[in-house]
Design a protein around this nucleic acid. Sequence first.
DNA 1: TCAAAAGTGTTATCCTTACACCCATGT
DNA 2: ACATGGGTGTAAGGATAACACTTTTGA
Lengths: 323, 323
Amino acid sequence: MAQQIEIGLNAAIVAMIDNNPCILRVPGPDALFADALPSGPFDPRTHRTMEIGLRGWVEEQTALQLGHVEQLYTFGDRGRHQSPDDSSPHIVSVGYLALTRVQPEQISALKMAGAGFRDWYEFLPWEDWRKGRPAMLDDEILPELARWAAIADKREHQSKDLRPSNRIRIAFGLDGTQWDEERALDRYELMYSAGLLDESVRDGRYKEKNVKSSTGRPMDHDHRRILATAVSRLRAKLKYRPVVFELMPTDFTLTALQQVVESIFGRSVHKQNFRRLVENAKLVEPTGASTSQTGGRPAALFRFRGEVLEERPAPGLRVGRLG
Amino acid sequence: MAQQIEIGLNAAIVAMIDNNPCILRVPGPDALFADALPSGPFDPRTHRTMEIGLRGWVEEQTALQLGHVEQLYTFGDRGRHQSPDDSSPHIVSVGYLALTRVQPEQISALKMAGAGFRDWYEFLPWEDWRKGRPAMLDDEILPELARWAAIADKREHQSKDLRPSNRIRIAFGLDGTQWDEERALDRYELMYSAGLLDESVRDGRYKEKNVKSSTGRPMDHDHRRILATAVSRLRAKLKYRPVVFELMPTDFTLTALQQVVESIFGRSVHKQNFRRLVENAKLVEPTGASTSQTGGRPAALFRFRGEVLEERPAPGLRVGRLG
DNA sequence: TCAAAAGTGTTATCCTTACACCCATGT
DNA sequence: ACATGGGTGTAAGGATAACACTTTTGA
């Protein structure tokens, strides 16, 4: 009668390494195929809430101190990840985004345990526009998506949802519409549906991948989807909450702050406007010190001015268009 | 080893009745105490995804056609709703927001089954500013919140989160900060923590309610919290997605549209600016007909122009400040 | 003719965007 | 002196917010 289910908690744990956004990966059960996100069960007998449970096993297994933690989405994912030997007992999984800072010695400790941080753009390479529009979009992704859309449009021609070709146009910023970095999840899902990802094949949706070259590293289960959700959410959150600072050292230069923001958004931002924004929002204060580690003129050091949280209701980095 | 858990799906199903936002309520298990949100189990054997499961039992039990459905939040809520006879077996519950249209005959059918729609402001009366600032805020809620904050501030004085008095200031728009209709959830949670709600007492957090008069109808379990989440989410969503139209009849006057938007936001909006907004966004088109049902000059009828979905990436009603 | 609601035209202000130039240090 | 990155001032344009008045019906 009452259906019994097990809950899995999966975390996309983000830290900056050399001003690049990295996520913690562990070897997947099918280790040859793909990485996995760290995950653990939720046991309501030992943890009062799921977030406490998550913090518990993460800090226990990785010795990382988590800062901001945020629930992303819950899915009961039968139909996905049906490996023949279905060793995964949990049917419902809850995805989380977590932010942390990481020290070099922690990195080596993790490495010995087989885990480690990896640049999130290795999993989602089309999301990185910092060096301009990624060539793989026009070379591989968009042509194949267009081919798929032509078929899918017909199949869904009377659905009341948006037709695939339009979803693609909006998600990928085609004809007139512009690229919106927050739509990372939409892009992932379209590529999954169109058979452009290793996961599309693994889940039995396609016989073979519809594109020859790499479309980023795959992950176990839905983990890459969770990562795409985390990327979308973090990119959106930055604009109205000062969460970036949980990824920064206590003292930093404005350029370093800008680089971190750019690396998360996957695009460059306008230097002066960025600075004015940070200044007007009173998000930081000068420490008084400066550093000449950067080459060129020494840069003033700043720290996060935590009091903004108590002053303004939504202090974020509402960065504008391309820089 | 593997902890077995049951999943409950709870839906805040919203429909407009006489231009007021109403939610579907059913008699709670503890029927004398409070209403409940409709809820049902998730059985992965019969439903591929949780959303399909939800649509399934809702349409089966209520004969309502759901439009937009959106997951809100998942909580593993031990510690809440510990009724002495804990007859509720599920420990994890997933909250959903769903929009629907309802006909008079459906209302009577539901009434016979003991269910029915109720104005959501009966549950959250402090959220309705359409007739000005609700008196209960200054009469009851804010004084008691201030008293609680004085104590709670001390207890949490070294927490790195915001102190309660500041969370109150931001959530309720005190000194300089202005009321933000999207913070309905924050407000609910603060009132719950401060012992202002019947739920605070029922859950054993307080011996008695800290305020004599009514602070809105209580609900079972976390259901009023889910409702507050739904209100927040719908208010936010309206601004960047044209979901209002799922709550409107196919043909409507611009004033009716404005009233629906106002009733959801719980505040009035500026008439001309609202109209210009709707017009500029090309969200509607005239049907050609007009109605004189409204008293006064007949009003032109409009319908939703569904093509905007295919044209603009984020077509919503970015309504501005107070009208 | 008057009440009640529909419907329109215009201006001030601020925020976003874009532009180009000067400054301080290490080599 | 020159390369490198740090740091600033200012103006154009568009979106937002605020304003008050005219029009068409039913009673």
